[in-house]
């Protein structure tokens, strides 16, 4: 059912020429995907998808749209090659599924090999109730470090291309969506809970769903919302754009620093048990620290990308 909707939305998004509607459809698509992830019991992923896909990236695409035109030009020809590539890829995916173990099959290899170890050993070795967090931040913590660097790289790339938001075209006090009398009080009421919730997700990730990635996005979306409703300048006064990329670098260095500390303590890179005499307590402390690094990097990159887009005006 959900999948069917996804397909319909995807087709509609390809056919439509009104880019504004397409962006809105993308938002719906992300929200449905998040629901799908919920259905698959991947709460953490659903969380991220809802915050990034439906929330922040919709705003970013809208600010991008502001710099160009709303209507897409009709293509002069319909090249057959892309269609063929898509058809072949789709066929290959279906072909692959013919021999795949059915969804939710407890005897499937993914549930038989490494997973039982994680379920049995996490309480003993890592000591956090959320096994997903244990796998992401500790067992496969190096992948998560890599992902944090990917986000930092993305921020760096936007910075290289667009520069720090708020250059010559930056007009303080002016807001992107006009003066909204109803919106302002609503946003004013919403922002404190959003920021508070961001902090909760950040520091509660080892117990419930969440962690640095989700918290960073939620925290940033609070700032984005404020900036949209109350105009540029105020949010920028709290966190100046010029400091954001330094903060992003700092987040990576915090995560990497924990790893290097373990290295000098004679353990392997990112072995958190070096942080404390009690290995399990060390794991817990390590996870909290690296999640803070992730949160800082994600927050600053998301916000700096938003600043970079919203700081630009169409040349007219």
């Amino acid at each position: 059912m959900l999948l069917g909707f996804l397909v319909l939305i995807a087709i509609a998004a390809i056919r439509l020429r009104d880019l504004f509607a397409v962006v809105m459809l993308f938002g719906v698509y992300s929200l449905l995907t998040a629901a799908l992830f919920m259905d698959l019991d991947a709460v953490d992923v659903a969380f991220t998808e809802a915050a990034v896909g439906a929330g922040v990236s919709t705003v970013l695409m809208l600010s991008g749209l502001r710099l160009t035109r709303r209507w897409e030009e009709a293509p002069g020809h319909r090249p057959p090659l892309p269609l063929m590539v898509v058809a072949v890829t789709g066929a290959a995916l279906i072909y692959a599924m013919l021999d795949a173990p059915p969804l939710g099959d407890p005897t499937a290899p993914v549930h038989q090999h490494v997973t039982p170890y994680y379920i049995e050993q996490t309480p003993l070795e890592v000591g956090v109730p959320n096994i997903v967090t244990a796998v992401l931040a500790s067992y496969r913590g190096y992948d998560t470090f890599g992902e944090t660097v990917v986000i930092f790289t993305a921020g760096l790339a936007v910075l290289l291309l667009l520069g720090v938001g708020g250059g010559h075209s930056f007009r303080p006090g002016e807001n992107a969506i006009g003066d909204q009398t109803v919106l302002k009080p609503v946003v004013k009421t919403l922002i404190p809970p959003i920021l508070l919730y961001g902090l909760y997700v950040q520091f509660h990730g080892d117990f419930g769903a969440g962690g640095g990635f989700q918290a960073g996005v939620i925290f940033a979306s609070g700032f984005v919302l404020y900036d949209l409703a109350f105009g540029e300048g105020n949010a920028r006064a709290v966190v100046p754009p010029a400091w954001l990329h330094r903060l992003a670098a700092l987040g990576v260095l915090i995560y990497g620093g924990v790893g290097v500390y373990a290295l000098f303590a004679g353990k392997a890179f990112l072995d958190y048990s070096a942080l404390s005499a009690n290995p399990v307590a060390g794991q817990h402390a390590g996870i909290l620290l690296v999640e803070i690094g992730v949160g800082i990097t994600v927050f600053s990159v998301v916000l700096s990308i938003f600043y970079a887009f919203s700081g630009r005006r169409r040349k007219s």
Partner: peptide, 20 residues
Amino acid sequence: DHLPVLVVILPLLTAPLCVL
């Protein structure tokens, strides 16, 4: 003993330093 990881994280962690 850390050489395999050092050859990766040395340039990796110098990158944010360059930004700073």
